[in-house]
Amino acid sequence: MRSRFVEENNPGSEMDALLLRSLQGYVRDTFGLSVWQAICRPGNLSVQTYEPMLRYDPGTADTVAQRAADVLGRQVETVWEDMGTYLVTNPGHEGVRRLLRFGGVSFADFLHSLEEMPGRARLALPDLDLPEITLNELGPDLFDIRCRSRVKGMTRVLVGMLTAMADDYGSLCLIESEEAESIRVRVMENSHGTARRFDLAMPDR
């Protein structure tokens, strides 16, 4: 088994590992294993299975996402966005949705908790280089989110996740990213649809 993960003590990236694993899950669940293999096959991608608990060279996630975009014939931004949505909505990743829902009882509450997200994540994974997120409330229902990360696709992943979370809270929103590292969220209606249920108690596995 050949792996190009970076070994312990090396300054590899845990964030890249988590994104690669998510990307792999998204592509395999949505387009099938053969598409994922096509993405990994050519060039220098010697790995076909990415492990979320290992570390990979910084930048690997952006490289693989670009390969995925080429193979799927889409913009890399779209790939990242769809992956973000997949992470929140896929039943196999229910844990992600749950962890995000701990952010607050309403979508606005949740948006305000975004700034705490890196701190929360570090409780479980102390070395995780999560993006730096700042939230500015421009108006009563208008937010500007800045997302600074070493990973180029990060802002788009966040856009995808926010879109899915708005839905989860039953809130109608306009979420756009016009420029890199910036997201504009306009909450049109707070209880547009039915929010998905959220029990504080951990579901049995």
Binding site: L99, V105, R120, L200
Partner: peptide, 30 residues
């Protein structure tokens, strides 16, 4: 069957629950 509203905002209950789930997720991945 407690909810968010059952705890004072100053309590760390949410953080503890969050941590327990995050830990369980990491353990499961490992």
């Amino acid at each position: 069957a407690l909810t968010d509203a059952d705890f004072a905002a100053t309590e760390l209950a949410m953080e503890l629950l969050y941590l327990a789930e995050a830990n369980a997720a990491v353990t499961r991945e490992l």
